[in-house]
Structure formats: structure tokens, C-alpha cells
Write a protein that binds this DNA or RNA. Structure first.
Length: 858
RNA sequence: GCCCCUGUGGCGGAAUUGGUAGACGCGCUGGAUUCAAAAUCCAGUUCUCGCAAGGGAGUGGGAGUUCGAUUCUCCCCGGGGGCACCA
């Protein structure tokens, strides 16, 4: 018996699809379109298993929709700007552009061995001027629309490298490479007004029904809309006032202090005269900026000596602190503290000996004796000790407090967001230059459209401190487009999220002279199914939603939501291995052949096997896709990616699993190869004679499988779809011996084998194409429609109904479909095991759920 | 700290609206084939009592709703993720 040669077969069909341009697509208003997109990769060097999973999922969807008659757009490109290119350039003495382009070459070749149904004619790389010139134009359009502004903002500054650090480059408060303590600095940076769309971005989440709930929830939390009030406290012995934002203005009578952020202008002003305060502010600035750092740090404050005057109580004064848990970026950078009803305020008050006055008490408690201990009372209740708010519940109290504030002009209702504007300036080389010029006389001047693109210089030095573009001897020196006097280019580049915020639209017309061809984007957009990692749940997806709105406002396209459907895939995990010294080992270094514990292949020393964790280079628990594809073939790798775990869950990579997938690939090939001689020719109409019992059983099963697999694929239950196909394979094997009694059985056998091949097509495209040809078809499988299930064959004539006594299973009965209740009851009570369980007692009640279950209650 | 997800055999996972828990695969055990091995095929495989027929328990733990709960409600425990310059 011959064996399946995956290598030859996979190359053969990849070439055939390419020669025929099977996956090249064009706008065709006559056909329904379907745009499926996987998140494009950063060209880091080689593909990893995460890519293999992502692109397998996307390819399955693309091929399935194609078979279902959609005009499918399925493109691929490269998210090619980014910091790793600069790091690699320094380490390997190469150039970021060269490094990136070489990586793209390698990775494209690797992807091509997977047999993915991309329209490669649409490939793009964001680092090419032909791509980024369009986003420079977009930026200028946004500027005109008032969606862009410049402001001072805080950054992590490495004083040795003279560079801004990303949060992940700050380790224990020190620069990752220099080890120098990181400082906070203010830089003037460009911002995009994402907050202008905050409400719409929040509101429209509801319309994204084909997004996972948890992603929508994460975005909702990120936007963080809160309804509350601004309140203005007059300051004792000063002319100005302190504005705070609060969502609990109803608790104003329980206020015992105010607190401002370390970077609040008032704090800055006071620090000028108070060295101790300046020290405290410096200490706050050394603290991490993330919310987690702030929330878990000890609550500390510094009493400024200022007193805020209570707007409703003459003579009542609240001390003003600078506190490390108040963020300048949120609300107004100032709060009032009501310790009785906020845990953080309570901790703070206990620490500094401030009053704790309860102003809301639970309904069933005597207000006179109600006290707050170590736990703030944040639940619903009625107001006490609160003057005109007494007796009101929380909601009414807020409304009344707002009215009271507005009546005396001491505040107003307000809505704030946690969402902040998007800072897009980066002090790096390998990014898209921001197309503006700074002129001493004219200020900020946009680069004229005719001068676009502003391209990066090639001759830069990266291994010195500071911003390479700023350091370049000539690049930034230009004349002002307005007054022609010597001026300087902006030397910052865009955040790389900029490129990924519109690439999906560019794929609709990747060669167009303008950024977007309206006819093409109007036809293809939005993306029908977007697939990628959950790690992009907030930033990339939110920026893209914003960007699409901004582009719509500028007339680039007509939709505001870029991604109608979203699927987030889980991570790939693998066991971890360490040697005696605790050093991580690669899976390839381990020898499992011995009877005892695994040992190091070279040294023979024992190895500790750790639990399965996300594949990562640092833990060395990685498996190289190229090696797997070389050893088992792309179809086997793809099948394994789809088999065991649902797409959104983590997947454990195991040798046993990939072996199992390979066994099925060869089994399917053998199964069909061995039967080719017994089949009627392709396209033979169904013979007139009836089927044998086995033939009928197989016939029904294959149509049930079509229905189930189609349903599973529609709902992205790919692991179940694989299981259904395997079940049908098992059944064909099982019934094979009983077939052949009548002429129609041969026809059913061919139908069954063809259905298995067609259903497996999107999963194992090369094998399926090969078998389709072996079965005698001239038209390629990729050009063949998806099979349809015959509804009549899905209806069962009899049903197996479970019989319970007091909820415990005692047997089953075969009943005609939709049998009458009486009939069902009789059949159930007639079961010996039922009467045995009844033990002579009369049933009190018999519950009959048609076609499902009968429960006898005693 | 806040928010979210998750928990089912030795393992990955099924169970569409509350209705036969464990589909499918992996692993393991026994057998066939082979000089031998690989590969392949057949049978078995939740735990427990029993020679068997059959009984009992069982979806992280505890309570509740129901004729019936993996599924719904409440409390508790374990594991994981996110929280603004990695992409």
C-alpha cells in the first residue's frame, strides 16, 4: 500500500492555486462579499505557533465562506514599524529597514508553506513610504478637522540614554538597558482627540453583537464613563478655588478633607515655597504610573496647610492634602474625601486622624447609633447628618445635591471619562515621521501636501543616546513652507498603533494612488470577521474604531465601525523544562525515551518538568512551526490547531497531539485511496433501487454531518466540527463491510467519501484537494461549492427516550417521534427496571417531555 | 486594590432552550499482525462494591430553586488575564 506524500502534495497544490490565481479577488457588486482578516504580524524574524493558530483559523473561515458562495477578501501584510527593529539593528550592526525587509522575506516564505488562501497581490508593509505617505495626509486632515492638538505630557525618561522609555522598558523604576533610575519629564507631544468620540465609542459597543462580551466589557471599562458633578471649593485666604470631580456629591456633608494630585498646578505652586512638599511630590513621581501600582501602594498624603471651605456649611474647613492616589489625568486631578463611604478615603482618614462622619445609613439601622469601623459603607441607604439631603436615598440625594450646587453656583452636573486622548508622539527612528515643521516665527506649520511623503533618512546612528532623527546632521533642517525662513522638522514619529489603525481599509485598494479608493472600501468594509489575540482587546481595537470614525469625518470612507465580527484566540502553551541548576531547556533538548524520568539529551542528567505555560523565548518552551511543517506537513499542523481546543481557549502543544493529527491525515488518505476502485464514476446519479440498511444509515449520517459541521463552523466551534468529521470517518469504516448488497450502496459510499473531503477542505486544504482529484474531479475543490444537507434526511422516525425514576436514569425506550403522552407513559412503566425501582409503590406523577425524557415520581 | 474569565475522567475537551454527563481525540491496558520493531487493526477504559446481573457515588466546595441542575441563584476556594509607550 502506498503512503501519503505530504511534501509533494502540498507543494503541488500551492503551486496550482498560485498559477490559477485562485484567491485573487476583485470588487464584484453581483456577489455578496465577505472580508476576513487576521491581525497582521510584526516581522520579528520567523513565524511562531501563535501565528500558525491565528492564520489557520482565518484560513478556515475564508475557505468556508468562499465555498458558501461569498466573494472573499483575505489579505496579508506586515506591521513593519516598531522598536524591535531598532534594538536588533544595534545588536546586529544592521539597519532597521534591512532587518525588517529580510524578516518579511523569511516570514512570507514560511507563511506560503502553510497553504493559506491569501490574495498575495494585496500584500503591504507599513514601513514603505507608499503606505505611510497616506497616513501623513490623514494626520494633516485630522489637524484641519480639529482632531489633533499638542500638549505637555509626562513620560518615563532615561537620563543615560537620553530617551523616552515604554512602561515595559522600566524595570523596578530603572531603565532596562542603562539601569539608571527613570525620571518623569514633561515633553510637548501630539495628541489625537479620541475623547471627542468617547460617548459614541461606548454607545456603539452595543451594536457589535459579533464581538466577545468580555472584549466589549474591557472597552467599556477602559472608556470608564462616570456621571457625577464638578464642585468648586473656595480656598481660605486665597482668591482662587479648587475644582473637584466626584460621583458621590450626595456625601458632601461627610467630607473631611480634599486631596490633589502631585502634578496638580496648585501642588506645583506650593512646592516652590515648601521643600518638604517638593520632596513628597518627587517621591510620588518615582512611583509607578500604572493604576495597579497606585491602587496597591500605601496611601500617603502631605498636608499643604490650605483649607477648602465647605459650600453648604458656613465656617466648616477641610484640610487640603497632596495625595499619591489622586491622578491628574482623571477628572480634575482633585477630590474631596468622604471617609465613611469610600474605602480609600477611610484608610487615608484613619492614617491621618481625620473625622469619619456617616452620612448614609442602611434603612433598617438606627441612624443615631450607626457608625463606620474599618469598612466604608458603600451600599444603598438613607441620608443622615446631611441638612437638606436627610432622608433621601442615594440616587435622589445625588440629584438634590446637584440642584443645590447649581443653585448657589458652586458646581454643576458633569460626565467624565477614564479614557484619555491618544498620545501619538514617539522619540524614535523606526516609525512614520510626523509631517509638521516648527518655525520660529510661524509656529507649527503642516508640511504642504505636495511635499509628502516626509521620508526617513537612511543614514542614521542608532547606538548613541537620544533621538536619531533629532541628532541627524541635516534631515530636520528645512525652510518654513510659510515664510521660507530656516526652520526645523518635527523629529518625533508616530506611535506604531497609527499604522495598524487603518491597514484593514488600505487592503481594499492597496495600490490606489489615494489612501482609500471609495468604491473599493464602500464595497469591502467593514471587515466581516477579524481574528487575533485577546491582548489587543483594548488599544488596537479601540484606536481602530476611533480612527475609522475620524476617517469618516474627513470623508475617506462611509462606515464608523471597522470590525463587524471579532474572534479572539487563546495562547499556545507548552510544558517547561529546567536542568539541575534551574536553567530553562528547549523541548528538543529533552530525551523522553527512557522508562524513568526525562533526562537531558546530551548530559543524561535528570530534568524537572514544569507545568504548561504560554510559549515564550525566555522560558524556551517553544516549538518551531517550520520544523513541524517540515516533519508533518501543513495540513497536520493546521488540523492540530483546530482539533482539541475551542479557538478562544489556550491550546496545549503536545507531541502526542501532533502525532494524532498526523495519524488522521494518513488514515483519511488510506481510507479513500483503498476504496477508489470500488466507486462508481464521479457524478453518477443516484440509482433507482433502494439502499441497504447500512447504506441508509450512512446516508442519513452523512447529511446529519453536513448539517452539524456547517452549524459548528458558523458558530466557530471548530473542534466540534473536527470531531463530527472524525465520527463520520469512523462510521464509514464500521459500515463498510455491510455495504455493497445493492447498487445504490456504491453511490452512498462515494457520496460519503466526497462529503468527508469537502467538509475537510477548509481545514486540510492540500490533502482534500488531492483526494478530490483522486476521486476523479476536474474542477478544483477550492472552486467547488459547500455541500447542502437534505432536510428530509435529518428527521428521525424514532427517538430514544430516557426513563428516570425520581430523577435517576433506569433505562431507555424507543418511541415513534412525537409519540403521545399516554403511549410514552405506558412504555416507560412497562420497563422491568422501572417497576423494580418502584418496588410496588404507585407513581405519584409522571412527567413526559416529548422526544426527550420521562420521569416517574414516587 | 479594581474589573473580568475559568474549574467536567489520567489529559485536551463534548453535552444547542434546565432533560440519558464524559461525543471526538490523546494516553493507558489486553489482543491480532511481525523474526523483531515501527505502522496498522480489534476490544476495553469516570470512580467504587460485585464472579455476574446489578447497585452506589460523581461536573472545585457548600447551600438553594426544580419532577429533574455541568447548565439558573447565593456564599466560599483554586487557577488565569487586564488595568494607557512591547507588538
Amino acid at each position: 500500500m502506498s503512503r501519503y506524500n505530504f511534501k509533494q502534495t502540498e507543494e503541488k497544490w500551492q503551486k496550482a492555486w498560485e498559477d490559477r490565481q485562485s484567491f485573487a479577488v476583485h470588487v464584484d457588486p453581483e456577489k455578496p462579499k465577505y472580508y476576513v482578516l487576521e491581525m497582521f504580524p510584526y516581522p520579528s524574524g520567523r513565524i511562531h505557533m501563535g501565528h500558525v493558530r491565528n492564520y489557520t483559523l482565518g484560513d478556515l473561515v475564508a475557505r468556508y465562506k468562499r465555498a458558501r458562495g461569498f466573494n472573499v477578501l483575505h489579505p496579508m501584510g506586515w506591521d513593519a514599524f516598531g522598536l524591535p527593529a531598532e534594538n536588533a539593528a544595534i545588536e546586529n550592526k544592521t539597519h532597521p529597514a534591512l532587518w525588517t525587509r529580510q524578516n518579511i522575506e523569511t516570514m512570507r516564505q514560511q507563511l506560503k508553506t502553510m497553504g493559506l488562501s491569501y490574495d498575495w497581490n494585496r500584500e503591504l508593509a507599513t514601513c514603505e513610504p507608499d503606505y505611510y505617505r497616506h497616513e501623513q495626509k490623514m494626520f494633516l486632515d485630522f489637524l484641519e478637522e480639529g482632531l489633533v492638538y499638542r500638549k505637555e505630557s509626562w513620560v518615563n525618561w532615561d537620563p543615560v540614554e537620553n530617551t523616552v522609555l515604554a512602561n515595559e522598558q522600566v524595570i523596578d523604576g530603572k531603565g532596562w538597558r542603562s539601569g539608571a533610575p527613570v525620571e518623569k519629564r514633561q515633553l510637548s507631544q501630539w495628541f489625537l482627540k479620541i475623547t471627542a468620540f468617547a460617548d459614541d465609542l461606548l454607545e456603539e459597543l452595543k451594536s457589535l453583537e459579533r464581538w466577545p462580551d468580555r472584549v466589549r466589557l474591557m472597552q467599556e471599562n477602559w472608556i470608564g464613563r462616570s456621571e457625577g458633578a464638578y464642585m468648586n471649593f473656595a480656598l481660605k485666604e486665597r482668591d482662587d478655588s479648587l475644582q473637584v470631580f466626584t460621583t458621590r456629591h450626595d456625601t458632601i456633608f461627610g467630607a473631611s478633607f480634599c486631596a490633589i494630585a502631585a502634578s496638580h498646578p496648585l501642588a506645583q505652586e506650593l512646592a516652590g515655597k515648601d521643600p518638604d512638599l517638593a520632596d513628597f511630590i518627587a517621591e510620588c513621581n518615582r512611583m509607578g504610573t500604572s493604576e495597579a501600582d497606585i491602587e496597591t501602594a500605601e496611601k500617603k498624603g502631605f498636608d499643604t496647610g490650605l483649607k477648602a471651605l465647605h459650600m453648604f456649611q458656613e465656617g466648616r474647613e477641610l484640610p487640603v492634602y497632596v495625595a499619591n492616589f489622586v491622578l491628574m489625568e482623571y477628572g480634575t486631578g482633585a477630590i474631596f474625601g468622604c471617609p465613611a463611604h469610600d474605602q480609600r478615603d477611610l484608610d487615608f482618614a484613619r492614617k491621618y486622624g481625620l473625622d469619619v462622619i456617616p452620612v448614609v445609613a442602611p434603612k433598617d439601622v438606627d441612624p443615631k447609633t450607626f457608625e463606620v469601623g474599618d469598612e466604608a459603607f458603600i451600599d444603598e441607604g438613607l441620608h443622615i447628618n446631611s441638612d437638606f439631603l436627610d432622608g433621601l436615598n442615594v440616587e435622589d440625594g445625588k440629584a438634590a445635591a446637584s440642584d443645590g450646587l447649581e443653585a448657589i453656583s458652586a458646581g454643576e452636573r458633569a460626565i467624565t471619562y477614564r479614557l484619555r486622548d491618544w498620545g501619538v508622539s514617539r522619540q524614535r527612528y523606526w516609525g512614520c515621521p510626523i509631517p509638521v515643521i516648527h518655525c520660529g516665527d510661524c509656529g507649527v506649520v503642516p508640511v504642504p501636501e505636495t511635499d509628502l511623503p516626509v521620508t526617513l533618512p537612511d543614514d542614521v546612528t542608532l547606538d548613541e543616546p537620544g533621538n536619531p532623527l533629532d541628532r541627524h546632521p541635516t534631515w530636520k533642517r528645512v525652510n518654513c513652507p510659510r515664510c521660507d525662513k530656516p526652520a526645523e522638522r518635527e523629529t518625533d514619529t508616530f506611535d506604531t498603533f497609527f499604522e495598524s489603525s487603518w491597514y484593514f481599509a488600505r487592503f481594499c485598494s492597496p495600490q490606489a494612488e489615494t489612501a482609500l479608493d471609495r468604491q473599493a472600501v464602500d464595497y469591502w468594509m467593514p471587515v466581516d470577521q477579524y481574528i487575533g489575540g485577546i491582548e489587543h482587546a483594548v488599544l488596537h481595537l479601540l484606536y481602530s474604531r476611533f480612527f475609522t470614525r475620524a476617517l469618516k469625518q474627513c470623508g475617506y470612507l462611509g462606515v464608523k465601525e471597522p470590525f463587524a465580527g471579532l474572534m479572539t484566540q487563546g495562547m499556545i502553551c507548552h510544558e517547561t523544562y529546567r536542568d539541575e541548576n534551574g536553567a530553562w531547556l528547549y523541548p528538543d533538548d529533552i530525551d523522553f525515551s527512557g522508562a524513568g524520568h526525562p533526562v537531558h539529551a546530551e548530559t543524561g542528567k535528570p530534568v524537572t518538568v514544569g507545568r504548561s505555560e504560554k510559549m515564550s523565548k525566555s522560558r524556551r518552551n517553544v516549538v518551531d512551526p517550520e520544523a513541524i511543517i517540515d516533519q508533518y506537513g501543513a495540513d497536520t499542523a493546521r488540523l492540530f490547531m483546530l482539533s482539541d481546543s475551542p479557538p478562544d481557549r489556550d491550546l496545549d502543544w503536545t507531541d502526542a497531539g501532533i502525532d494524532g493529527a498526523w495519524r488522521y491525515v494518513s488514515r483519511l488518505w488510506r481510507m479513500i485511496d483503498a476504496r477508489l476502485g470500488r466507486l462508481p464514476p464521479p457524478g453518477t446519479p443516484r440509482p433507482d433501487g433502494g439502499l441497504s440498511e447500512a447504506g441508509d444509515q450512512l446516508h442519513r449520517a452523512l447529511h446529519r454531518t453536513i448539517a452539524n459541521v456547517s452549524g459548528d463552523l458558523d458558530r466557530f466551534h471548530f473542534n466540534k466540527a473536527v470531531a463530527r468529521i472524525r465520527e463520520l470517518t469512523n462510521l464509514i469504516d464500521e459500515l463498510d463491510g455491510a455495504l455493497g448488497g445493492v447498487e445504490s450502496d456504491g453511490w452512498v459510499l462515494r457520496e460519503s467519501l466526497e462529503v468527508v473531503v469537502r467538509l475537510a477542505g477548509p481545514m486540510m486544504p492540500h490533502l482534500a484537494e488531492e483526494l478530490w482529484q483522486a476521486l476523479g474531479h476536474q474542477v478544483l475543490l477550492v472552486d467547488t461549492a459547500w455541500p447542502e444537507a437534505e432536510a428530509a434526511l435529518l428527521v428521525e422516525e424514532t427517538m430514544t427516550v430516557a426513563v428516570q425514576v425520581n430523577g435517576k436514569l433506569r433505562g431507555t425506550v424507543e418511541l415513534p417521534k412525537d409519540a403521545a403522552e399516554n403511549e410514552a407513559r405506558e412504555a416507560a412503566l412497562a420497563l422491568p427496571r422501572v417497576s423494580q425501582a418502584l418496588d410496588g409503590k404507585e407513581p405519584r406523577k409522571v412527567i413526559v417531555v416529548p422526544n426527550r425524557i420521562i420521569n416517574v415520581v414516587v
